[in-house]
């Protein structure tokens, strides 16, 4: 128990003291997480929207596929991406392996299905009259979709938040394709894993606290937005 408290105290000191390593790792983590979330939602939300609102042949299969992709083991995704980006792999020429873009690619593959599946569930739950009413009042199909999105905005926000959370907390794939290189591909999660194995419990604790703080901040913002919507 003492170890834990000691780690917590020294971790807090590192954060408050603005330890360059902590700042550096946090900045990279945020950059990776924000970029991946934007790309994952850019793909996942429209796909989820289509799957959730339109009837087409193979729709059930698409939903099953999406739900299966939710359970992708992150290390397996990391392994496949590694194989694709490795020098001898089909995309080796791009020289992306062990860069932060490699981590982004893996995270997008992991987070896009989450955004898609949650979006599909969100818009499926929307009263079908929303779309019909917009259409009969003269809306174009695009504006009718916007009306549905507006009605589902809190659930869509949740989809984005969950995707962000997944990306921020993911460690397996980031470790494999990023390589955990200091200043380049060392994210909060991979750094925690390394610091712990090296016995630097204080640093691990400090980084863990930052991760928790980030998760908390995002959720508080979400709560505030939802609260305003209820008023």
């Amino acid at each position: 128990m003492e170890l834990l408290w000691d780690g917590l105290r020294r971790g807090a000191e590192l954060i408050l003291g603005g330890d360059p390593d902590v700042v550096d790792i946090t900045a990279l983590s945020l950059r990776v997480a924000v970029t991946s979330t934007i790309l994952a939602c850019g793909v996942g939300v429209p796909v989820g929207f289509v799957v959730g609102t339109t009837r087409f042949w193979g729709r059930r299969a698409a939903i099953t596929a999406l739900n299966t992709m939710l359970a992708f083991p992150t290390v397996v995704v990391g392994l496949v991406i590694w194989g694709l980006l490795a020098r001898r792999g089909p995309f080796g020429g791009l020289e992306l392996l062990y860069t932060w873009w490699a981590i982004v690619i893996a995270e997008v593959i992991l987070a896009a299905p989450i955004a898609a599946a949650l979006t599909a569930a969100a818009v499926q739950g929307i009263d079908p009259r929303v779309r019909r009413t917009a259409l009969t009042l003269g809306a174009t199909p695009l504006r009718a979709h916007l009306a549905v999105a507006s009605a589902a905005r809190f659930a869509l926000l949740t989809a984005v938040t969950v995707a962000f959370g997944r990306v921020l907390a993911e460690v397996g794939a980031a470790m494999i394709v990023g390589g955990n290189i200091r200043h380049y591909t060392r994210t909060l999660t991979t750094a925690v894993a390394l610091a712990t194995s090296q016995g630097d419990f204080a640093l691990a604790m400090a980084l863990g606290l930052v991760l928790l703080a980030l998760a908390l901040t995002v959720n508080v913002i979400l709560q505030l937005l939802q609260g305003r919507g209820d008023a």
């Binding site: 009263d127 009259r129 929303v130 019909r132 009413t133 917009a134 259409l135 009969t136 009042l137 003269g138 809306a139 504006r143 009306a147 507006s150 009605a151």
Partner: peptide, 28 residues
């Protein structure tokens, strides 16, 4: 659809005021 309008039996009104609902329809 811009010339034909349906009022459903249990109509849907968008979030906001009655005035805003009217304005939305007219803006379309």
């Amino acid at each position: 659809r811009r010339r034909v309008t349906l009022v459903e039996q249990t109509p849907y009104l968008f979030a906001g005021t009655v005035q805003e609902n009217m304005a939305y329809a007219l803006s379309l």
